[in-house]
Design a protein around this nucleic acid. Structure first.
Length: 429
RNA sequence: GCGGAUAUAGCUCAGCAGGUAGAGCGUCAGAUUGUGGCUCUGAAUGUCACGGGUUCGAGCCCCGUUAUUCGCCCCA
């Protein structure tokens, strides 16, 4: 048996790489337009960072981490904790009061793979650290929205909620606990555990009986104070003004402990069980939890594989095409030269001039090389054999229409330019 | 961690009452002397996922393993 890739991982072969590049490049462009700066952090961190930053009781930390060296280190399961750690460790707060950071990176979670879920997966995301102003909430949501739209992803719904502050939530959680205690027999085993540790997450249940229970459960929003409500309403009215459509979902809770105030998810209608393509929210306490001077922050992360699934489906239905890699400019056919250093010399000078070019390395026939040039979608070909070497001249052929002009081997670059010029003129006439 | 489905050439798949495999696409090579795309001709490639069992005989039946996939949990 051959060795296979580990479960939940994938190879990106050359014929597929353009898709991923498209997503990454598009995201980068939009991040840059929003004046977010890229940050990169190590692939693994001290396990303690995630335990403190994400929360011991979360699924990610309690059962999905890839840890090694006796648990000392862990492959990063998400980026936010790492970014905050780097923000603190490099004292970025001293460089500017507001840091707008973005990342594109792979993550690791030991989950059971299924559609749109892998053990090694990629996210792009942003973190804005230093502002508690609602305007940055809007900026972050608008940024996420802009990237998806720039990518050509349109079939999604933005769901918004506010989780308030810890103090507000405390009061609410007591009420919620009381409510669920009354109905404890109906609760599932996992919900019973959550009742003790994090009752908020029961709101996230998919169990039909529990959903029924939720209808009469106390609603968090009723327990929030005016400042919190105003913050949230300001976010909503700004989004209205920006023409960004959303749905408020008071049952939207997120799986990570650090969220407060605004939270959101971008849900696709076309993805199956893993419908969230992007998620995020405000986390005003995380910086302090990780040992820094308190700083409010908000961020999001988007699943690249899930976005790719959506785009691939659109491409299949011809509603979308991925950009291709730049084509080969020139293929030099070796017509029986045993010593190919002359050709390689040519290749080198052309490549140095920015021409993407290729020749034969299999000693194949002229015909085969022409076929190869055609397969590679080369713009031009030139056949070089003994006589071309002697005369220093050859015939430059344009593959799109088969036209040829004579070219000097010493100045193929110029001849290609000349070719374009001549035919442009002809087209103009 | 728990359920369901699947596992035949690089890809998509066919195969049968159980008699040691086929198509299309792709790849490669040819169709007169050093020139592609269309067409035609030909070729290569499979321990039919792995291990065991039933049988005179298994890709096809049974068991196990592994992998893939969809779902539960949770998340991007």
């Amino acid at each position: 048996m051959q060795i296979q890739k580990p479960r939940g991982t994938y190879d990106i072969i050359p014929s597929e790489i353009n898709k991923r590049k498209y997503v990454e490049d598009t995201a980068k462009k939009v991040f840059s337009n929003f004046n977010f700066s890229e940050i990169r952090t190590p692939t693994f961190e001290n396990t303690q960072l995630f335990k403190r930053g994400i929360g011991e009781e979360t699924d990610i930390v309690s059962k999905e981490m890839y840890s090694f060296s006796d648990g000392e280190f862990t492959l990063k399961p998400e980026m936010t904790a790492s970014v905050i750690r780097a923000y603190l460790e490099n004292s970025l707060y001293n460089e500017a009061p507001l840091q707008k950071l973005f990342y594109i990176s792979n993550m690791f979670r030991a989950e059971r793979p299924q559609k749109g879920r892998f053990r090694e997966f990629s996210q792009f995301g942003a973190e804005a650290i230093g502002s508690g102003d609602y305007t940055i909430d809007v900026e972050i949501i608008a940024l996420a929205d802009a990237i998806l739209k720039a990518l050509g992803v349109t079939e999604f719904t933005i769901k918004l909620n506010t989780l308030g502050t810890i103090e507000e939530r405390k009061v609410y959680l007591d009420e919620l606990r009381k409510y669920f205690k009354q109905h404890e027999p109906v609760l599932s085993e996992t919900s019973k555990v959550r009742l003790e540790k994090n009752p908020l997450r029961i709101l996230d249940t998919k169990n039909p009986e529990e959903i029924k229970l939720l209808e009469n459960a106390p609603v968090l929003y009723d327990f929030l104070n005016d400042a919190t409500k105003t913050h949230f309403q300001n976010v909503l009215s700004s989004l209205d003004a920006l023409n960004i459509k959303y749905e408020v979902d008071y049952k939207l809770v997120r799986g990570l402990d650090y969220y407060s105030h605004t939270t959101f998810e971008f849900i696709s209608t076309a993805l199956g069980a893993q419908s969230a393509i992007l998620g995020g929210g405000r986390y005003d306490l995380l910086v302090e939890m990780l040992g820094g001077k308190p700083a409010p922050a908000i961020g999001f992360a988007a699943g690249i594989e899930r976005i790719l699934i959506l785009l691939e489906e659109k491409a299949k239905e011809k509603h979308f095409t991925f950009p291709e890699e730049p084509r080969l400019n020139l293929y030099i056919v070796n017509a029986g030269l045993k010593d190919n250093t002359k050709i390689q010399k040519l290749l080198l000078s052309l490549r140095a001039a920015g021409i993407k070019c290729e020749s034969d390395f299999l000693s194949r026939s002229v015909k085969s090389q022409m076929k190869e040039a055609n397969k590679l979608n080369a713009e031009y070909t030139i056949v070089i054999g003994e006589s071309e070497i002697e005369t220093g001249k050859g015939k430059l052929k344009r593959m799109s229409d088969g036209k040829e002009i004579s070219a000097e081997l010493g100045r193929i670059y110029d001849d290609i330019m000349l070719f374009e010029e001549i035919s442009n003129k002809q087209n103009a006439d």
